[in-house]
Design a protein around this nucleic acid. Structure first.
Lengths: 207, 207
DNA sequence: ATTATAGGCTAATTGTAATTAGCCGTCAAG
DNA sequence: CTTGACGGCTAATTACAATTAGCCTATAAT
């Protein structure tokens, strides 16, 4: 990995831990294994590092979201993957989402960084809401609309259904961000939640 | 209000907005209407201000929690207030909790400050989890256990029930912290959620 | 072979934040 | 009335963070 990428990498790590303002360029440099002034061969300023991280993140997010049709309101209609709403399948969706958010190193660090910086300016706050609230709700909503249309789920307000499904995932995620040791407990509770959710919304006809 | 209190007041305001590390004692002093060195007549250091805020917060929290038996696992048994689980009553509990968290100036600012500082050290993270996750879940759980015992709600896993009730409240709260303009939308969705929740868990016998 | 560039370093420079030193006016208690 | 403490101020002091200047080496292209 070249130096520029290493700088971005350790900066994200440090920003996620302490926040932009509490990280010094000297610390970034040290973690990279160079001296502070050398950073300026790669970035115009400390802020430029942060901005580059934001851009990189946006880029990756678009990629992932494009793959999942997670943004926009055009959840795929083919229903290929989620053709029936078995409890097991819903558990997989939920635990999969949870684990991805929690364990993907990049996603995790970026989320923590945004958590710390979300009040610093409106743009960052809006970005946080979009990535970790609105888009996931939209995505889940799309799935549920599909499953309702195909008769696998009861008719109900899609938004309500999405928030009832996703909010516990989100809450448990924030716990594990602070206290990773609680992951096991979180997943157990998450599964119980989804099974319960499934029973509440499923058409009365599956195992 | 005396100067010492004013210092705490404006410090909380600023810390909640920008985080401890991005607030300078000069800014605190200016907001109070004095010069920076004068702060040191009231506090030993900048950190001492932060610590005083934490203590004050703990004190207030204990007071409130004692009033609600919100912490500990001894939710009151008298059932005086929530003696029946009407949809309306659950909506009141939920919207009340939401509004209190969102609009009480002190509670709101403190929550934002902790949100920013939650990864700074383990103690702050644990405090966040306790105040905004575990204790509310315990509290809700206590209520639900009671309502189940008195036959107003279906038997179900209390933890699951509590997280399904509370997580959407929490999620909507974080949205409004970032984007206060979305409060109306949030309350509408919150009410729909609780009504749905109520129908899912109520014994089949109420309006 | 030469040379330009990339990327590293040391040594300033600049700016500013936290804190300390020490002065001064007010006012309440003796 | 006078004195001490309370709380304000100005002017250092100290520390250190961000950035710039300018040098040096290796290497890759001409």
């Amino acid at each position: 990995m070249n130096t520029k990428e290493r700088i971005l990498d350790v900066s994200l790590e440090l920003f996620a831990q302490r926040g932009y303002g509490n990280v010094y360029v000297g610390q970034i440099a040290e973690a990279v294994g160079i001296k502070a002034p050398s950073l300026y061969k790669h970035f115009k300023s400390k802020r430029a590092i942060f901005d580059a991280l934001l851009e990189e993140m946006q880029r990756r997010y678009m990629e992932t979201a494009a793959g999942l049709q997670m943004n926009g309101n055009n959840a795929r209609e083919d229903g290929m993957v989620f053709s029936h709403a078995s409890e097991k399948e819903l558990v997989n969706i939920g635990v999969g989402l949870f684990s991805y958010f929690l364990h993907d190193e990049y996603v995790k660090k970026f989320r923590k960084m945004l958590t710390i910086e979300q009040f610093a300016d409106l743009e960052l706050g809006a970005l946080y809401t979009k990535n970790y609230v609105d888009d996931p709700l939209m995505y889940q909503g799309g799935i549920f609309k599909m499953l309702m249309a195909s008769g696998h789920l009861q008719k109900a307000d899609v938004k309500v259904m999405a928030i009832q499904f996703y909010a516990p995932i989100y809450l448990l995620l924030t716990i594990c961000d602070r206290e990773p040791s609680r992951e096991k407990e979180a997943i157990t509770l998450l599964k119980k939640h989804i099974r319960q959710f499934s029973r509440q919304y499923a058409k009365a006809n599956q195992e």
